[in-house]
Structures are given as C-alpha cells and as structure tokens.
Amino acid sequence: MTVVNQSTLDSYPVTLAFEQFSLQLERTKGTPGVPIFDMEGGCMLAASISRNWGAYGRFVWSINNPQAPQPCYSDSSDGGVGEQVESEVGLAGATYRLIMPRPIGMPQGTYKGSTQFTVGGDGDFAFGNNATNFNNAMLTVHLELDVRHDLYLRFPPGSERAVLEPPGGWQAYLGGRGVPPRLERDLPFRIWSTGPFKVYKRCEYDIGEHCGIRNASNHSVPVEVGLSLPGNVQHGGDAARRIQLTTGAVGAPVFEPQQLLANHPGQVHFQVGREAVGEMTRHAGTTYQGQVTVVFDAEL
C-alpha cells in the first residue's frame, strides 16, 4: 500500500508481510476433533490449545515464507469415517511485519494509508471449503505511521558570540593595504540526525534577505549566513556547501542525510562583503552588532 504524509503529501510504498495466523474453533457437529495438527501447505504449528476431547481449540500457524506465502490447510478426515464436521470460528488474528523505506529519508509527520483484502472463497483470506456466514467479504487495513526524527546539535563554548574579522586578521588593513575583501567567522558544530531537516535564520535587524549588524549611529550592513554540512548530507541533490539560509521558515533549504548522522561536523558561516566593509571603515571606531538565530527544524 501507499502511505501519505498528511502535511507534506510525500508518499511512500509499504508492504504488509503476514507472518502468523490464529483461529479459535469450536465443533458444533460431528465427533472428530477440531483439525489443528494435521497440517499441509506452507505453514507450521507454532502453538495450540485443545479442550473437551478436541471439541474446542485455539492455534497459531506460522507462515514459512511470508514474502511468498503458500496456502495452509488441515485435513479434517478421520480415518475414513466420513462424518461431516462443522465448527464455528470465534476469534481470528494475524501478525505481520511492516516492510517500509528507511525512515531516515522520510520527512517527519503522520503518514496514513489503507488497503483491502477479500475474505472467503478463493479470496486473500480463505477459511476452507464450505465456510459460510462471514460478517464481511472485505477486510480493510488502515495504517497510521508517526515518524519523529531525533535532531541534536552541539556547539563549543563561546559560540553564542561570533567576532567577524578579515581573512588573516586586521594586520593588513592596519598596515595601509586597503579595505579588507570581507569580514567573516565560521562557527563549527557537531550534529546528530535521523532524518531530513530544514534550516533558516531569524534576524534582530532585517536588511532585505539578509540579517544586519548595526552601530550606535544606526548604520547597518548586511551579513550573509550560510551552512555547510558533511558530505553525506545533500541539498537539492548536491553537496551541502555554504548554502545560504532564508529568513524565516518559508522556502527554507531542506537538508537530506543519506545515512545516519552521528557526531558529524558542520559549520555556520557569517560574512560581510567588500562593499559593506568599505562602508564600515567610514565609521571606524564604532562597534557593529546584531543578533542572528539559526533554527534547525525537523518539521518540514
């Protein structure tokens, strides 16, 4: 069957592989015992209870090959006596294994799907020759899967403050070599994740699509905020290298681990471009600052 994410509408195929069946039978006509042990076909007896000289029984049959099951049945004959036996089915049950994609590739959320099986005769669930009085000729199985991913980050102490500097420091600028090409700071972190996630930013000061830093005279310049993740994480099918973050969750870039992330390295990049640095040098002696919040979100 197909299950669909109720928020994102992503869909994935899943398979029910039935592994065991159980029945409760009670003889209503005839003297031979309820047939439990004389089995043929693609099953084996897993457990059974029999009482009243075999007039009542419960049993569990295991499917030998759940992915390619063969019919399972028992022989109700009794040494050639030929007496007709009738039994009532009081309870029926089944166990199954769910075969599904790796959850690491599935967006977080609730997935729903359903499928139907025919009951009786030569249907998907056939209870033998002359079985009658089914209360329904169709069995509908509904699945609801709740996918919740773990997402954990660890930044080193002091990461709450990013001091932006030219590549190699301020020595060249102080020595009269002109305006630095940029100001930058990379903050390293470690990441653990079991599934896809999106990342975006929130700004204390907004300057277009960028966050801003501002001095005491209210002069502002934009700061580009990017993200780099390990090689086994993709964005849009490519490596996640210096991906620019949006302001707010709308349209935020989505990152898809190709395998479990466990203590892998990443970096948040902050950068002020040459033109903005030139503006800042005309306000030498002032301090520019602003708050940027980077949000890692497993809710896609």
Rank of each mutant, 00 (worst) to 15 (best):
A131G: 06
L227Q: 00
G195Q: 09
F255N: 03
L151G: 09
T115V: 14
C72D: 13
Q271Y: 07
V250H: 05
R51E: 05
F296C: 00
A162K: 12
S22E: 12
N263I: 02
L229R: 03
T2P: 10
T118M: 07
R154G: 00
R241T: 07
N136G: 10
P103I: 09
V4K: 06
V141A: 12
Q259V: 01
G178V: 11
P32G: 11
E256C: 09
L45E: 04
E40D: 08
F155I: 08
E275K: 09
R185T: 00
G285R: 00
N136Q: 13
A94G: 12
G178Y: 04
F197Q: 06
R282L: 11
E184I: 07
G169H: 05
W192C: 06
S77E: 11
A284E: 03
R214M: 15
M100W: 10
G54Y: 10
V199C: 12
L9M: 14
I243S: 03
A46T: 02
N64K: 11
D186Q: 02
V292K: 09
A252V: 05
I36D: 02
T286F: 02
R102T: 07
S159H: 15
D186W: 03
P167N: 06
T132V: 14
P69E: 05
S220I: 15
L261Q: 10
I243C: 03
N135V: 14
L98Q: 08
V163F: 14
P257D: 01
A249P: 08
Y205F: 13
S217P: 02
D206P: 07
Q6A: 14
S11F: 13
R177N: 14
A239D: 08
T115A: 11
N215E: 06
T140I: 14
G290N: 08
P222M: 03
T287P: 02
R161Y: 12
E204C: 04
Y73A: 14
V294W: 06
P196W: 04
L229V: 03
Q234S: 15
R241K: 02
P157F: 05
H149D: 09
E86H: 10
N215P: 01
R241M: 00
F127A: 13
V4T: 15
L261K: 06
P253N: 05
D206H: 11
H149G: 09
P107E: 10
V233F: 00
G41K: 06
T95P: 04
A240C: 03
A68G: 00
P257A: 02
M106D: 09
L187G: 00
L260R: 11
R241F: 01
Q271R: 13
L98F: 08
S11E: 15
N133Y: 13
S11A: 12
L9C: 07
L300H: 03
V292C: 06
V292D: 03
D124Q: 08
I207P: 10
E19S: 12
M280L: 06
P166I: 12
G208V: 09
N136D: 14
L245N: 04
Q271L: 14
V163Y: 15
E279Y: 04
V221C: 05
T281A: 01
P103C: 08
E165M: 13
T95G: 15
A126L: 13
L25Q: 15
E275L: 13
L300N: 01
D38F: 11
S74E: 05
N218Y: 10
L23R: 12
F296Y: 05
V250C: 02
R274S: 13
P13M: 07
F155Y: 15
L143Y: 13
L227V: 04
Y96I: 11
R282G: 04
F21G: 12
V268R: 00
R241V: 15
E256Y: 06
S77P: 05
